[in-house]
Structure formats: C-alpha cells, structure tokens
Simulated assay, not measured.
Amino acid sequence: MPSPSDCWTAFAGQRLLASGPPSEVVTAARRALDAGEPESLLLFDDATGRQVDFHLRGSLEEVLARLQPAPEPAAEASESRGPGRPKLGVVAREVTLLPRHWEWLATQPGGASVALRKLVEAARATHGDADRVRQAQAAADRFMTTMAGNAPGYEEAARALYAGDRARFNKWTRAWPDDIRDCARRLAAPAFTREAP
C-alpha cells in the first residue's frame, strides 16, 4: 500500500533511478524493469526514509492505478459511523488519561475536545522545528541503514547526523557512491537547520 508522502525515490542498485512524485517514480521503475534493468529496484518514501513495498507487476496503467487512494465508503456507511465529524475531517479515537487529567479537561472552556486540540496546536507551534529535525534524522538514518549500512564511515555519519554536525556528516559520506551520498545528504538537510548543542 503506498504511503501518503509527496516524494519517493527509486534506486537501481546504487544508482538513482528517479526522485519525485510517486507516479513519476513508479513510472521510471516500471520502465526500467521493462528495459531489463539487471539491478534490484528499491523505492523509498522520502518523508520517512522507509522502503515502499510497492508491486510493479502488470502494465504501467495497472501499476499507476495502485497509487490511487481506496474509494470512500458509501454514504450509508459513513452515516452509521460513531462519534466525530467526518465531513470536517474530525476523527474520533480513544485517548487514555489519568483521572486528574480528565478532571482538568472537564473544567476547560469548550470541553475536553477543544482543550486537547488547543494543546496539540500549541505543542506543534512550540516544538515544530525540533519535530522536523527529529523526522529528518529518522528518515535519513533509515535510508542510510538500507543503502549504506556497510559503507565505510556509516556509523560515524550516523553519529554526526544525530549530533547535528553537517561538516562531519559530509566528511563521512564523501566516499559513498555519488547517488547514495547525495540522497542521504538531501534527506538529512533539515536535521542541520539548527546548531548542534
């Protein structure tokens, strides 16, 4: 099942095949298979660095059709759903809190849902940069583990990534195959937007 990311990357062995919207990447991968590409093809979700398990069998039209989201359930099914406001994008899920948390939430204007939404938005505003750094570190590390886990300097590069040290990261990735090095650096770039502690 495809991930929701806007950007995927495909490699044929150590060579970059394509990077961009999922439809362009799977098209390039399908065409490479049709042309008899001898190397293994790996697809990655750039947002997470995870490999995408995507079936490239069949015609190009069939492959592209697999990227389409599953159809929405019928109107009757959505009306019979539980709490939440699906038309507004509100999703009801279980939240587990201690009794003192529920007591505090009950005293907030607008009730628990409004208070929780405000808390989440405040946390996103306060910690947004740190969250982006952490996500970039995780994505780059996952990609590097798969594509460069046995490469010289991998462990040192990973340490530099988590330390926020771009110069050391670049030093230890310098000897890697060009396309792998460049992709790792691109995925890691947001991790270096703030100074190392």
Score class of each variant (00 low, 15 high):
1 M>V: 14
1 M>D: 11
2 P>R: 10
5 S>F: 02
7 C>K: 11
9 T>Y: 04
18 A>F: 04
18 A>T: 08
21 P>V: 14
21 P>K: 15
21 P>S: 12
22 P>N: 01
22 P>Y: 05
22 P>K: 04
24 E>I: 08
25 V>S: 02
26 V>H: 02
26 V>E: 04
26 V>Y: 05
28 A>C: 05
29 A>P: 05
33 L>T: 06
33 L>S: 04
34 D>L: 10
35 A>S: 11
40 S>D: 12
41 L>Q: 07
43 L>H: 04
43 L>R: 03
44 F>A: 03
44 F>Y: 12
44 F>D: 02
45 D>E: 15
45 D>F: 07
46 D>P: 05
49 G>M: 01
49 G>V: 06
52 V>Q: 14
52 V>D: 07
52 V>L: 11
55 H>Y: 11
56 L>M: 04
56 L>F: 09
56 L>T: 11
57 R>W: 11
57 R>C: 08
57 R>Q: 15
59 S>Q: 00
60 L>F: 02
62 E>S: 09
62 E>F: 01
63 V>G: 06
65 A>V: 01
66 R>M: 08
68 Q>A: 14
69 P>L: 01
69 P>D: 01
71 P>Y: 02
72 E>I: 06
73 P>I: 02
74 A>H: 08
76 E>A: 14
76 E>M: 06
77 A>R: 12
78 S>R: 15
78 S>E: 14
79 E>S: 09
80 S>T: 10
81 R>M: 09
81 R>C: 05
82 G>Q: 10
84 G>V: 07
84 G>M: 09
85 R>W: 13
86 P>H: 09
88 L>F: 03
88 L>M: 09
92 A>I: 05
95 V>K: 11
96 T>S: 12
97 L>A: 09
98 L>K: 11
99 P>I: 10
105 L>Q: 09
106 A>K: 10
106 A>D: 15
110 G>E: 07
112 A>M: 10
115 A>R: 09
115 A>P: 08
116 L>H: 01
117 R>Q: 11
118 K>G: 11
119 L>T: 05
120 V>I: 13
123 A>Q: 10
123 A>G: 08
123 A>L: 10
123 A>R: 12
124 R>C: 06
127 H>F: 12
131 D>Q: 14
132 R>F: 00
136 A>V: 03
137 Q>L: 01
137 Q>P: 01
139 A>I: 03
139 A>P: 03
141 D>H: 15
144 M>N: 02
144 M>I: 03
145 T>W: 03
148 A>I: 00
148 A>W: 00
149 G>K: 09
151 A>T: 00
151 A>V: 01
152 P>R: 10
153 G>R: 04
154 Y>S: 03
154 Y>L: 05
155 E>P: 05
155 E>H: 15
155 E>K: 15
156 E>P: 00
156 E>R: 15
162 Y>V: 09
164 G>E: 04
164 G>Q: 03
167 A>Y: 07
167 A>K: 13
167 A>G: 06
168 R>L: 13
168 R>A: 15
170 N>L: 12
171 K>H: 15
171 K>D: 12
172 W>L: 08
172 W>C: 08
173 T>W: 04
174 R>K: 15
176 W>E: 01
180 I>Y: 00
180 I>K: 08
184 A>F: 01
184 A>D: 01
186 R>F: 11
187 L>I: 00
189 A>R: 12
190 P>A: 02
190 P>G: 03
191 A>D: 05
193 T>Y: 00
197 P>N: 07
